[in-house]
Amino acid sequence: MKSSRLVARDSLRHGIPEKYKLFLMLLPFLVLVLIFSYLPLLGWRYAFYIFKPGFSLEQSQFVGWYWFESIVSNSYQVAEIKRVIVNTLAISGLGLLVNCIAPIFAILLNEIRCRKFRTSVQVLTTLPNFISWVLVYAVAFALLNVNNGMVNQALLALGWIDKPLNILASSKNVWLTMTLWSMWKGLGWSAILYLAAIAGIDQELYEAAKVDGASRFQQTLHITLPGIAPTFLVLLVMAIANLLNNGMDQYYVFQNAINKSSIEVLDLYVYNISILGGSFSFGTTVSMLKSIISLGLLLVANGAAKIIRGSSIF
C-alpha cells in the first residue's frame, strides 16, 4: 500500500486524485464499449417508426406498435414467422443433441491408451473449429458439388448412383445436414472442455473403485459421468440461452433458392427482410423481440442451474 503522504504528493503533482486518474485512463475504452455495445440499443426506437436508411428519425413516421402487430396481423406473415421459428428451434434442438455427443466423444477418447494417438486426434479434430463458415462452405462445395465434387465422383465410380446428386442445393434434410456440418466443425472443440474435466477428476476415486472390483464401464458410469456433469450443465445452460441465436454465417453461406425455406433461421431472416428486403423497422422489431426473449431464456436457464447445482453460472 502506498502511504497517504505519497498519495498526497501524487495528487499534488498531477492535480487529479489517483482514483479519477485511473478512471480517466480507462475512459477511452469505456467509450468504445458504450458506442459499440450500448448505443445499438437506442436503435430499438426504429421499431416504432417507418425507418428508411438515409433519413433521420425526425423525418420518419411514428407508427407505435404497428410493426409488432404486423407480425401477427395476416395469415401470410404468421406462416412466415412460424416457418422461421420452426427452422430455428429445429436446428438448435438438433444442436442440443450434439451437445450430448461431445461428452461421449471425450470419454471414448480418454479410453485411448496410446498418448500420441490421443493427442493427435485431439489436435486434428479441433482444427475445423478454427476455420470460418465460408471456408467450411468452400470445403463442402469442393467435396459435394454436382459437377466434379469428390463424393459424387466416388459414388458414380462405385455405381451406387446413376447421376450426380446435388446435395448442396436440396430441400431435403437441410436441418440434418446443417447439424452435421456444425458437428464436423465443432465436435472436437466441444470435447476439449470435457477432456479437461475428466483430467481433473481425482485419480484416487478410480483406484478405490478398482479395489472394490468396479469394471471400466462401471467406473465411467459412477465416477467419470458425475465428474463431468457440472461442465455439461454449464454448456447446456449456454445452449438453451442461445436457442434463438444460431448466428447467421453458416446459414447465409449454405443458403440457396432451393433450400431457403428450411434454412432460414431468425438471424438470417432478419438479414433477408432488412438488408435485402429493405424493411429495416420490421427487421429491428424481430431482432429486438429475439434479444429480449434470449435474455429471458438466459435468466431462466441460469435460475434452473442455480436450483439444480446450488450455484448460478455467472
Binding site: E18, K19, Y20, L22, F23, L26, F29, L30, V33, I35, F36, S37, Y38, L39, P40, L41, L42, G43, W44, Y46, F51, P53, N245, M248, D267, V270, Y271, S274, I275, F280, G283, T284, S287, M288, K290, S291, S294, L295, L298, F314
Partner: peptide, 29 residues
C-alpha cells in the same frame, strides 16, 4: 482497487457478453 467505481465499470464491460441489440440496430449505428 483505488479506481473510482471500479467494479461498476468492470461489470459495464463484461455484461456486454450477454446481450446484443440485434444486427439491424448495429448496422444502422
Amino acid at each position: 482497487q483505488k479506481m473510482w467505481m471500479r467494479s461498476f465499470w468492470y461489470r459495464f464491460i463484461v455484461i456486454t457478453m450477454y446481450f446484443n441489440a440485434g444486427i439491424i440496430p448495429w448496422y444502422i449505428l
